[in-house]
């Protein structure tokens, strides 16, 4: 497949959807006009194709600024940025942005356009036929779990916040961009909706394998979604850039540790599968509550606590393969943490 950003996406029928292109930022700095110190100072990062990289860090550290330089919403003061093998700074910014999916925290749907028109904006700009656009809009609305028959002809204000955020994601995916930039896309929703959106999004990303830069200041979200996490400090300094497991198990310094905070143990549970814990005999499993071996331990713990029993059943396709108790969960977490500690 081509690694040139501005080439139009191949026909869906022929090649399936387009997976990601790698992004490389080299010594990128940004000083805002009138600002004395740079907001981003010598930022260098390699983002592998098809990975989801999460920028986390305290408010004002420069996450948004760094991300927006990739599609040139903000022009870097110096440095170089490439997507695939193309130098972003030499491309026409308008054409560049049509090939980079973009989701902002405030969603920013166009209120005077229907949901279908909103999602069709970029395909239309790229000159797709009306029929192809309509087909794509339908497909995308279904992808983000919105029934086109119900929602296509509604207006943004007739949707809930969570539904609008899905439309925002669908709109960014519309022209099948190899690269997506997402600035706290699930920020404006309640925790439950947020978790559901995250799950759906992860599912989607498993299929699409876009290269995604995702900004959040919610560390739990970073751990859930990221293939890698970049913990940023002041002026977008990279304090640690690693997989969620390793960031959790071996924080680079006290700053990262404090950022992870007390959520570490619980969040870490989300990374271990039930199958990796030492399961008890199937004979001790209750016939009620049960989980699949691929479920994460955090979900299993939730179920265990809410079932009020000593153990829960582990079932694979209806067959009980074992039972899981609190001690096994704790042991698995300890083993997981120490095994990553040395890495």
């Amino acid at each position: 497949m081509s690694d040139r950003l501005l080439e139009s996406a191949p026909d869906e029928e022929a090649a399936g959807s387009r997976t990601g292109l790698g992004i490389r930022l080299t010594d990128v700095s940004k000083t805002y006009p009138g600002g004395s110190a740079p907001a981003v100072d010598g930022f260098t990062m390699d983002i592998p194709a098809g990975e989801l990289v999460v920028f986390v860090g305290p408010s004002g550290c420069g996450k948004t600024t760094t991300m927006k330089m990739i599609n040139r919403i903000i022009e870097p003061t110096s440095g170089s940025i490439t997507i695939g093998d193309e130098d972003v700074l030499t491309l026409d910014p308008v054409r560049l942005r049509r090939r980079v999916g973009y989701v902002i925290q405030q969603i920013g749907l166009f209120p005077h356009m229907t949901i279908a028109q909103n999602v069709g904006v970029v395909p239309q700009l790229l000159g797709w036929s009306a029929a192809r656009t309509a087909e794509r809009v339908d497909e995308l609305l279904r992808t983000v779990a919105l029934d086109p028959g119900v929602f296509a002809h509604r207006y943004p204000r007739q949707l809930s916040g969570g539904q609008q955020q899905r439309v925002g994601v669908a709109r960014a995916l519309a022209a099948d961009p190899p690269v997506m930039l997402m600035d706290e896309p699930f920020g404006a929703t309640d925790p439950i909706t947020r978790e559901r959106l995250q799950d759906e999004f992860l599912e989607l990303q498993r299929r699409l394998r876009k290269t995604i830069v995702f900004v959040t200041h919610d560390f739990a979200e970073a751990v859930r979604l990221g293939d890698r996490i970049a913990v940023l400090g002041d002026r977008s300094r990279i304090v640690q850039y690693d997989t969620p497991r390793r960031v959790l198990a071996a924080p680079a310094d006290d700053y990262v540790a404090s950022f992870i905070g007390s959520t570490a143990a619980l969040t870490g549970l989300g990374l271990v599968r039930v199958a990796d814990a030492e399961l008890g005999p199937a004979s001790e499993a209750p016939d009620t509550a049960g989980v699949h071996p691929d479920t994460d331990l955090r979900t299993a713990l939730d179920l265990l606590v809410s079932s009020c029993g000593e153990r829960i059943a582990v079932r694979d396709g209806g067959r009980v393969v074992g039972s899981l108790g609190l001690a096994a969960i704790a042991a698995a977490l300890a083993a997981h943490t120490s095994s990553n500690g040395g890495a």
């Binding site: 599609n71 919403i73 308008v94 054409r95 560049l96 942005r97 049509r98 090939r99 973009y102 902002i104 405030q106 969603i107 920013g108 749907l109 166009f110 209120p111 005077h112 904006v121 970029v122 700009l125 709109r171």
Partner: peptide
């Protein structure tokens, strides 16, 4: 026109003129 709408128009790849004609003037 809210800043978020202007920014998403820019981010989608509307030119200035397209933003004016298709987003700002209708709104």
């Amino acid at each position: 026109v809210p800043a978020a709408v202007m920014e998403s128009a820019l981010g989608m790849g509307y030119t200035r003129t397209q933003t004016l004609l298709r987003v700002q003037l209708p709104m």
